[in-house]
Design a binder for these strands. Structure first.
Lengths: 363, 363
DNA sequence: CTGTTAGCGCGTTCAC
DNA sequence: GTGAACGCGCTAACAG
């Protein structure tokens, strides 16, 4: 029982294939009675046009690609969910794949997506001095990056206020009277970490305090060891900033292992909220980023690009920056305040449009 | 700058298109020097064969579909990650979409995947008395369900030991001396919840205790309210079993809100481990399911089916059941034991093969 | 070993 | 309004 073909439908309806095509696409008028005869034949045969033949003939593929480093990280999974939701709303399908932070895998998968004729790609790119995605083979494919920008002019990007967020976090600790604040990141190459670090530095410079940074906090052991080391210093830190939510969790465990009290012995705050951050002892003060929005906007920017006539695409992609907000709990030293929606990761951040050109997006 | 076509390559190399095709697929021998001329032309033009033309010609599409209820749930995201990893290893691409627990969306998306010529579908199906996936249009497409079985004979399924796991949880509480144990689920229709409930009932029946169940624990409020109600009873529960990890988190918050102590006032255990379960106060005792393995096996079963000649596919899909294991922490009343790998969700469960027919999978 | 023919299923000519 | 024929890019059959 193979799939019915257009010719079969035409024969059954006693018309030419062109008429069937007409009825399907409604491009030209067809005699009402002929049309209904065709429709009936379509129904009877369970006919569905062959997408591949269509695309071969020049039609759009109605599919986009999404590349994320990993889906094990709820952050990316949430973004993927949003992208898919947008794609679904547009009647598009989404080819998803992971790069596993391999620049080569990323390139291979993106190239493979091209063969699948995706109309565009949304990607959270792997850090690289010179991205392989600048290869000419991608010239004709709209690309939108999110969370981390891609160093390619025509590629639009959607990111959050990394610097401002880290700055607020730092200022908050300073307001609590802290002078010795350490920043923990898990990679010196990551755009988000670098930018957050920048915000931290800026805030510290205001009070003339010296930054202390560890960018190797990529495992429980590394964090525990670092903590042990610095707490033994002559002037130990009184507060920590975790560069992302994984580091926040490492920190909690490490602190608990060392038997220190939060916030009495050390205060801590983290970038990026996460489930159960409010249930830790004590609840963690964080800067929350609008994760779902991040993916949603990225996808919408892509679809906006798909809409413009295929040729006159702008040479330079826009940049969208999403607001973050501070969620004060008590690990910073504040009194715990009961939250309205305890485990909500969704903020109603408004979007700040910074781009000077490109597609305008309004949320 | 359009993509080069095979004819162009042929012309540049001064050969026929067929020769180019042969060089690409290595189907027949080609004169070494001719071959290298062709290869050079391919290189020069950056030629890549058009997958769509290939598929139209009858080739395999080298893509599979994956449908999950949501990616916001780390459980499904993890499964998706595994499925993608397997697909990638096979050189396949994965079309991913969410059903949002809508039986109609599920059907629409699956049908749309068919148009995209996926060779097979991996799915965590939405509960339904009569799945729309039994529609004839899917007859020729291999389907594998995971986490929840699909009521269609030919569809293979991969699930975990839901009943046995819940039973162990219950027995463990009973061993602690508990008699009044309540079971919390979030839906009466869900296979996993129903099966876990069954295991719970079975364990209770051994000691002749009466089951007490709430299957509406689908929000923080619902759980908090239920807890408040039952704790006011004449013979209040002394222990709870959370049917999944979301409910475990609701329970913790509710108990903390009511100011009860764990495990002194009430003991709790949960089905399905989660990040930070070891960092709660006190750490939560759980049954851990091999989430990554679940997706991996499901994908592997699908690829095994794809391998067999397209026609003689078995009428009845196999069933694979994955082992779960008990992670004893202290919310059950046990002394806290330091774990080896604190935040590992990955267990090295061995697989139990229960199926009587179908593809044999070994891990 | 290599080129020619035909056709996968559809849509766009162009006639009728 | 409708149909016949051609071609999108590729490859299974045949020649040669």
């Amino acid at each position: 029982m193979k799939r019915a073909t257009m010719a079969e439908v035409a024969r059954l309806a006693g018309v030419g294939t062109m008429t069937v095509s007409r009825v399907l696409n409604g491009s030209t008028k067809v005699q009402p009675k002929t049309a209904s005869r065709v429709r009936e034949a379509i129904e009877r045969l369970g006919y569905r046009p062959n997408e591949f033949a269509r695309v071969l003939r020049g039609a759009k593929s109605r599919s986009i690609g999404l590349i994320v480093p990993s889906l094990l990280d709820p952050f990316f999974a949430t973004c993927a969910h949003s992208v898919n939701t947008v794609a679904q709303a547009h009647g598009y399908s989404m080819i998803l794949t992971t790069s596993n932070d391999s620049i080569q895998t990323e390139f291979n998968e993106a190239a493979w997506m091209l063969e699948k004729h995706v109309e565009g790609i949304v990607i959270c790119p792997t850090p690289a001095k010179l991205s392989k995605l600048s290869s000419p083979i991608f010239y004709r494919t709209p690309i939108v990056s999110f969370d981390r920008p891609l160093g390619i002019p025509r590629v639009a990007s959607v990111v959050v206020e990394n610097s401002a967020g880290a700055r607020r976090l730092t200022e908050h600790l300073i307001a609590h009277g802290h002078q010795h604040i350490h920043f923990l990141g898990d990679s010196p190459n990551l755009f988000t970490i670098k930018t957050r670090l920048d915000g931290y530095r800026r805030a510290l410079s205001v009070i003339g305090a010296a930054p202390r940074v560890n960018l190797e906090s990529n495992s429980q052991n590394a964090v525990t060891r670092y903590l042990k080391d610095v707490m033994a210093e002559r002037k130990p830190p009184t507060a920590f900033i975790a560069g992302n939510n994984r580091i926040s969790r490492y920190l909690y465990r490490a602190i608990s292992q060392l038997g220190l009290r939060i916030p009495e012995d050390v205060a801590i705050v983290g970038f990026d909220d996460f489930d159960l951050a409010d249930m830790l002892q004590p609840p963690l003060t964080v800067v929350n980023q609008p994760v779902e929005l991040l993916g949603k906007i990225a996808a919408e920017v892509l679809f906006a690009e798909l809409k413009v006539e295929t040729e006159d695409r702008p040479e330079i992609g826009g940049k969208t920056v999403l607001k973050v907000d501070l969620i004060v709990r008590s690990s910073c030293g504040c009194q715990s305040i009961p939250e309205e929606s305890p485990n909500s990761r969704v903020s109603d951040s408004k979007q700040l449009r910074i781009a000077s050109s490109g597609i305008s997006v309004v949320v």
